[in-house]
Each structure stands twice: as structure tokens, then as C-alpha cells.
């Protein structure tokens, strides 16, 4: 990185550290922080979408639909996310490739399962066999987003399902009295009011989601904990210009600070959102705000 980094053996401590912290591996390490933040930013809305859809299906009046919704919530919530991640991504990837295979290569005559091998035609490969590395990485990243969203969508569905039932009955009755249809009642009265009930649960879910990111490595995304472990491990001078002992503790300490800071920032942001949502709502919090405004 710096011009004085050509021969690390001759450097004094501060310069050595400056060079060490700007090696290519460290840049990958810093990139992985962005990757984790990016994943969170994408996963949160997608998971919320899954949750909303799950809750809507679960409270459907058509019995089989409602069973599907409830089964999704119950099964995915019942399994530890780690166990889910260990086989689900491969299954998801195979499912996509299988569908594409069926669509793109109708005249393929070899079986897809050859013994234990899962083989689809070249055109059905995801990503295509000759795609550059970044496409593969993006694809892996999207699979991770989908898997995370399915898992956390189930939890979000549970929260939203509860929140929809917590909206005071009187509000819905008023809407009916105004002659609104079921659909109108749902979108104009229930959904806007539900958020304030859902937010405490959803913000906790967000906190849990932040802390689930170390599992990303299971999904094939090189996350910060993977790099911290890799970089912190003992390095012998034969394979690196910057040998050092077991420094995992310092790297993990850095991660600890990162996670704590991120949690703190999220707490402050969520408090603000809660304040805004409570405005004018018929809850204890809304009541307190009204009193505060008067006084």
C-alpha cells in the first residue's frame, strides 16, 4: 500500500503496523464489513416482505392457505438457524438449477441425479460456468439474502401476525360502520395502525439479525468473523511477510466493538422511529406524548 512497505523486516513498529493493516487480505477484511452491512440492508426489507406475506397468508380465511402460513411460521421458527443454513442453501441452489434445467434444456437425455452427483446442462448452471468471479459472488450473496430472509421472515411473520390481532377491535368496527370493504379495512385501517404494535418485536428481530451475521460463512459468504479468524491465526514467516503469533483475541475485540457500536446506533434509530409511529396512536405511549405536548 505505502511506498515504504517494500521490506517489512526493516520497519519500525508503527510503520510495520501501518503496512500490516493495509495488506490485500486486510482490505478484504474491511470489505467484508461493507458486505455484512449490505446484506443487512438488503435482508431487512426482504425479510419484512416475507413476514408480511406470511402473516397475511396465516390469517387468511381460506383454511389450507392459513395452514400453510402457520406451518411456515412454526417450522422455520422451530429449527435453529444454523441447522437450517447447513443444508438449505445447497437445496435452494439445486432447486433453481433444476427449474432452469427443465425450462432451458428440454431435450437433455441424461438423468440429473447421477449417483450422488447433481448435474444439469451447461445453460442451466447458476451462474453460468464461464461467468466471471463477481457474478458467482453476487449469486452466493443473493442466496444468502434469500435464506436469511426466509428464516427471519418467519419470525417477522409471527410478530406481524400478533400485531395485526392487537389492533383494537373498535377501530375495525368503526371502519366497517363507515361501509369499508374487508380489503379497504385491511389496507387503510389495520395495516397503518399495526406497525406501532409490531415495532418492539421487529426491532428485537433486527438486533437478533445483526448477531446472526457470523453464520454467513456457512452460506459461502466470507464475513467478518471468518476473516478475523483467518487473519488472527498464527502466521509463520514462510508464508507471509508479516509473521505474528495468535492474535485472534485482538481481532475479535475489534469485532466486539463493531457489534456493540452497531447495536447502539440501531437502538437510537429505532427509538426515534418508535417515537414517530406512536404519534397520535391510541396507546399508552401515544397518551404520554400527548400529555408531554400539553405540559
Amino acid at each position: 500500500m505505502f511506498s515504504f512497505c517494500t521490506d517489512p523486516d526493516t520497519l519500525d513498529q508503527a510503520r510495520w503496523l501501518a503496512c500490516y493493516l493495509t495488506t490485500g487480505v486486510h482490505l478484504s477484511f474491511y470489505m467484508s464489513f461493507l458486505k455484512v452491512l449490505g446484506l443487512l440492508a438488503v435482508t431487512a426489507p426482504v425479510a419484512l416482505g416475507f413476514g408480511f406475506a406470511g402473516a397475511m397468508v396465516a390469517r387468511s380465511h381460506i383454511a389450507p392457505l392459513s395452514w400453510i402460513g402457520k406451518a411456515y411460521i412454526a417450522i422455520v421458527r422451530g429449527v435453529p438457524d444454523i441447522a437450517f443454513f447447513l443444508f438449505f442453501v445447497i437445496a435452494l441452489d439445486q432447486a433453481f438449477e433444476y427449474l432452469r434445467h427443465k425450462a432451458l434444456c428440454p431435450d437433455w437425455d441424461e438423468p440429473i441425479r447421477q449417483g450422488r452427483d447433481f448435474v444439469v446442462c451447461q445453460a442451466a448452471k447458476l451462474p453460468l460456468g464461464n461467468a466471471p468471479q463477481w457474478v458467482h459472488e453476487t449469486y452466493g450473496f443473493s442466496l444468502a439474502v434469500i435464506t436469511f430472509s426466509i428464516v427471519f421472515g418467519a419470525f417477522a411473520a409471527n410478530v406481524i401476525f400478533g400485531a395485526m390481532r392487537a389492533v383494537p377491535r373498535a377501530q375495525l368496527e368503526t371502519a366497517e360502520a363507515y361501509g369499508m370493504t374487508r380489503r379497504q379495512t385491511f389496507w387503510r385501517v389495520l395495516v397503518p395502525q399495526m406497525w406501532v404494535f409490531a415495532l418492539p418485536g421487529l426491532s428485537n428481530l433486527w438486533m437478533v439479525l445483526i448477531k446472526a451475521t457470523p453464520l454467513l460463512f456457512l452460506l459461502g459468504v466470507e464475513d467478518i468473523v471468518y476473516w478475523a479468524r483467518e487473519l488472527g491465526g498464527t502466521k509463520t514467516p514462510r508464508f507471509t511477510d508479516y509473521p505474528h503469533g495468535d492474535w485472534r483475541m485482538w481481532y475479535f475485540l475489534g469485532l466486539l466493538v463493531f457489534y456493540l457500536a452497531f447495536t447502539r446506533v440501531s437502538e437510537i434509530a429505532l427509538d426515534r422511529i418508535m417515537g414517530r409511529l406512536t404519534l397520535g396512536q391510541a396507546t399508552a405511549g401515544g397518551e404520554a406524548q400527548r400529555k408531554g405536548a400539553v405540559a
Binding site: 438486533m207 448477531k211 446472526a212 451475521t213 457470523p214 468473523v225 485472534r248 483475541m249 475479535f252 469485532l255 466486539l256 457489534y259 456493540l260 447495536t263 447502539r264
Partner: peptide, 18 residues
């Protein structure tokens, strides 16, 4: 409460063992 709720269990196990 803040420290234990704010950090992943992975890291807590690591420091615990250490």
C-alpha cells in the same frame, strides 16, 4: 445487559473459552 445483548454468541464463546 448491553454487552451481552449487543454481541454475537460466537464472540462470547470465543472470549469465554479464552
Amino acid at each position: 445487559i448491553f454487552i451481552f445483548r449487543g454481541s454475537p454468541l460466537f464472540i462470547q464463546f470465543f472470549f469465554g473459552y479464552f
